[in-house]
Lab assay of single mutants.
Amino acid sequence: NQESVVAAVLIPINTALTVGMMTTRVVSPTGAPAEDIPRLISMQVNQVVPMGTTLMPDMVKGYAP
């Protein structure tokens, strides 16, 4: 099972992602793949992402898996 990126903390809208904001988990439906964490760092979210929420590609500005 592939791990997806999950918010480790509450991420406010327009916040640039840091490694400490993200964790990985096997979830369904799958979100952004765990191996993309290095690409996701410094990208901004376009909505509030509550802690424990799977990071879906459409939540991150300019990100395409």
Results as ranks from 00 to 15, higher is better:
S28Y: 14
M56F: 07
V49N: 01
L10K: 08
K61S: 12
V9R: 06
A34Q: 04
G62Q: 06
T24K: 13
N14T: 08
M51A: 14
Q2P: 12
T15M: 09
G52R: 00
V9Q: 11
I11S: 00
Q2C: 15
P33A: 05
E3Y: 13
T30S: 14
G62Y: 02
Q47P: 00
V27W: 07
D36K: 01
M21I: 07
G52D: 06
Q44R: 14
I11Q: 01
V5P: 01
P50G: 06
V5I: 14
M51W: 05
T53Y: 11
E35Q: 13
Q47K: 02
I41N: 01
A64E: 15
V45S: 03
T24A: 15
A16R: 15
V60H: 02
P33I: 05
E35A: 14
I11G: 01
G62P: 01
E3S: 12
M22K: 08
I37P: 01
D58K: 12
A32D: 04
T30A: 15
Q47L: 09
V9H: 02
N14L: 09
M22R: 07
I41R: 00
I41V: 14
T30Y: 14
V49P: 01
P12G: 09
A16Q: 14
P29D: 04
I37Y: 04
A7Q: 03
S4H: 04
M22Y: 00
S28M: 13
V60A: 02
M51S: 11
K61R: 15
V5E: 01
T18Q: 12
V26S: 10
P29N: 03
P33V: 06
T53S: 14
P50K: 10
D58F: 15
L10M: 15
G62L: 03
G31Y: 02
L55K: 02
M56C: 07
I37R: 02
M43W: 00
G20R: 12
A64W: 13
T18L: 09
D36H: 06
I11C: 05
L10P: 04
R39Q: 10
S4I: 07
I37W: 04
R25D: 09
N14D: 13
A34G: 09
N14F: 11
Q2W: 12
P12S: 08
E35F: 13
V45K: 00
G52A: 03
